[in-house]
Amino acid sequence: MRKRDVYYWQERSILKNLDQEWKEHLVFKIIDNENIEGIGAATPNKEFGETFKTSMAIVESLRKITENFEDLNHILEFENKVHSIIKKDMAAKTTVFLAVYDYISNKNNINLENYYFDLNDHHKKNDYERIIINENTKNTVSDSSYIKFDVESYVDPKKLIEIVNNHKNADLTVDFSGLYNSYEIDFIINNIKKDISITLEQPFKYGQEHIAKKYLNMGYKVYWDESFHNIFDFYRIKDYSTGFVFSISKMASLSNISTLLRYVKENGFETIISSKLEHPINLKWSNKISNAFDITDLNYSKYIKTTNK
């Protein structure tokens, strides 16, 4: 006899101010015989080889273990069991793990995130306004003090330079998403106005991080996102880094994030909690743990209109 019931389905966020009309999410719900519930959600990321169809199939494959696992309070044991079955698809695992975290929190009347993170750090955080950039982006100007330009698809370097040069009074981060070669990055940096300070995020694709060493030597900050998934990546690229970008859907579990966060902080690097376009449930968990990080990059309010079935 199963210990609890499990349901899973698709939800869709209707988007605004973007070329894309919607984003599909995975949703997973647990409910026991006392009507205690837990719900989780995540979004497959094509950059990591995930698709909605394959991720949903993996969520379905995790139904039985979630229904029949003896005691979900033994969360690390449950996570290890899931990791032994599913090696890669982090969106699917995140969907299930967040549902379990929510269930444990509700069943025990606790804030589970406090068991993983020190959330009593009240020093001032930088909170980005995210501006998604593509070839159709108009050259707008923001009044925010901290701006992140998220280059989601290749944009002509001259256009990107023009957009950046219109924001001389802000602290800017440009997420290049590994889309440019070293000549293009040089061209962009050399043509940004000298009184504009920028931080480089993922300036090169996975495996080419060493090229960024020269920008560190020139005084630029360099953050890594797509190149950073685990402790092996940390040691592989830390010599070319100022900071590292964490996200729940990239790393799947709070235990993975908290362990990796400790390593990064102990070695003196800056930390960012971020996300792609995500389901509100997923963003809620990211915000719950955001006080453990130096920089918060979770504001998608200007791009998400509604989320529903």
Rank of each mutant, 00 (worst) to 15 (best):
Y154P: 00
K148L: 10
T242D: 02
V141L: 14
A42D: 11
E24D: 15
K29C: 11
E266Y: 14
K288N: 14
F28E: 00
G38E: 06
N256R: 13
K158M: 07
R262C: 11
L216A: 06
K250T: 00
G49S: 04
N308Q: 12
S286I: 02
I132A: 03
G243W: 02
V174Y: 00
Y8I: 06
I65Q: 03
D118L: 02
H122W: 10
E270G: 11
R63C: 09
S182W: 07
N45F: 15
N166S: 13
K213P: 05
Y154W: 13
F117E: 04
D5M: 11
Y128P: 01
I237F: 06
E50N: 09
S145N: 13
G49K: 06
K193D: 13
W22D: 10
M90A: 12
N191P: 01
G268Y: 05
I86F: 08
G268Q: 03
V141S: 12
E113N: 13
S274A: 10
E162C: 03
L277N: 04
E77T: 14
L98M: 15
T137P: 00
I75D: 02
I110Q: 11
N181F: 12
N139V: 09
T95I: 09
I272T: 04
F204W: 08
A57N: 15
S105T: 02
S145I: 11
I39W: 08
I110V: 10
S145L: 15
I289Q: 01
Y240K: 06
D195V: 04
H123E: 14
I281V: 12
T95E: 07
S145H: 13
V96A: 04
K205H: 11
R2W: 09
F246Q: 01
T140K: 14
T51H: 12
Y206H: 14
D19M: 13
G268L: 06
N111P: 01
E184L: 06
E77L: 15
D32N: 15
D143S: 15
S301K: 11
I257P: 01
Y223T: 02
L172Q: 01
I58G: 00
I147M: 05
G268I: 00
Y128Q: 04
E113C: 10
I188D: 00
A91R: 09
Y154H: 14
L172G: 01
K88D: 12
T259I: 11
D294V: 00
F69C: 08
I273R: 04
N299H: 08
S61Y: 12
I188L: 00
T271K: 05
K16F: 08
H167Y: 09
E60V: 10
S241R: 06
